[in-house]
Simulated assay, not measured.
Amino acid sequence: MATWSRYRESIGDRSGLFSALTDAWPIERALYPGSYVDLSPSTAFRSVVYVDSDPRARRFFADREVVSSERAGRTLPGAGSQVRFLGADYTQRLELPDASVDLLISLFAGPVWEHCRRYLRPKGWLLANTSHGDASLAALDPTLQLVAAVHHRDGHYSLATDRLDHYLEPKRPENANVEQIRTHGRGIAYTKTAFAYLFQRLTPASDPTGAS
C-alpha cells in the first residue's frame, strides 16, 4: 500500500514548509488538490481536505489507523484534528462550500487555482509552484498578490518576504501570456527562482473573478 513514509523517500518531508506557513499566517483550514498521499499539511494545520483520483490515495486515507500512525510524533499541537479525503477529480465541482478554506495548495498538480479558487476565502492564500504553470498563472492574476517566496535547500524550507519585486520577473517577457501558459501547461522561466510562491487573494470570493 502507498504510504506517506514511503512517499517521503521520493519527495522529501514538506512538514517544515507548512510549519513555516502556520507560524507566519493564521492558517487553519487547507485544501490540497492532487495530494496523492502527502500528509504533511496535517502536521501543521487543524483541518485539511485532500483531493486525488488515484485509487492508491483513496486506500491510504481510508485506513484511519495508518494515517494516524504516519503522523505520530510529527504533528504540531492542535494540528491534524480533521483529515478528510475526497476521491475526486479536482477539475470538477467538489463537495465543499465556497470560500471555506484559508489555504489552497497547488504543488506539482496542474491548474489548481483556475479550478479551485472558489473554495478559497477572501484574503486567503494560494501556495503554488511553477511545475505545471500554476504559479505563473497566479502571477498574472490581478486578484492575487505575492506575499512570500518559498526556498528549499538541504531539506530545509524558508520564507522570503522582502524584495518580492525581484521574483516572478520573466526572463522573456513575451512568455508571460496566460493563454500560452495554459496551452503548454508549464511555468515560464524567471530571473530569480524559488521552490514555490505564496499569494494572497485580494478580491472577495463573491466577485465574478472568484468563480471557477
Rank of each mutant, 00 (worst) to 15 (best):
L96S: 03
R117S: 04
W113A: 08
V51C: 08
P97F: 07
P111A: 10
A57C: 03
W113M: 08
Y157T: 06
T161R: 11
G110S: 04
Y90F: 15
E9S: 10
A79R: 01
F85I: 06
K192E: 14
L146A: 11
L31I: 08
G210A: 11
S15H: 03
A109C: 06
H184A: 11
V112K: 00
D165T: 14
Q82R: 14
L144E: 02
H166V: 08
R121E: 10
T191I: 08
H132L: 11
I105D: 01
S68N: 08
E174G: 02
S206Q: 11
Q200T: 10
T130P: 03
H152A: 07
H166S: 12
L159Q: 06
T43R: 10
V48L: 05
Y50D: 05
F18Y: 15
K192W: 08
R153T: 10
H132W: 15
A211H: 14
H115G: 06
A30N: 01
G16W: 03
R201W: 09
L39S: 01
Q82K: 13
F61V: 05
G87F: 10
L104Y: 02
P122Q: 09
L202P: 02
A189N: 10
T193C: 10
E169Q: 15
P170D: 04
G78F: 07
H184G: 07
R186A: 11
Y32W: 04
L31R: 07
I181T: 06
A205K: 02
D54P: 02
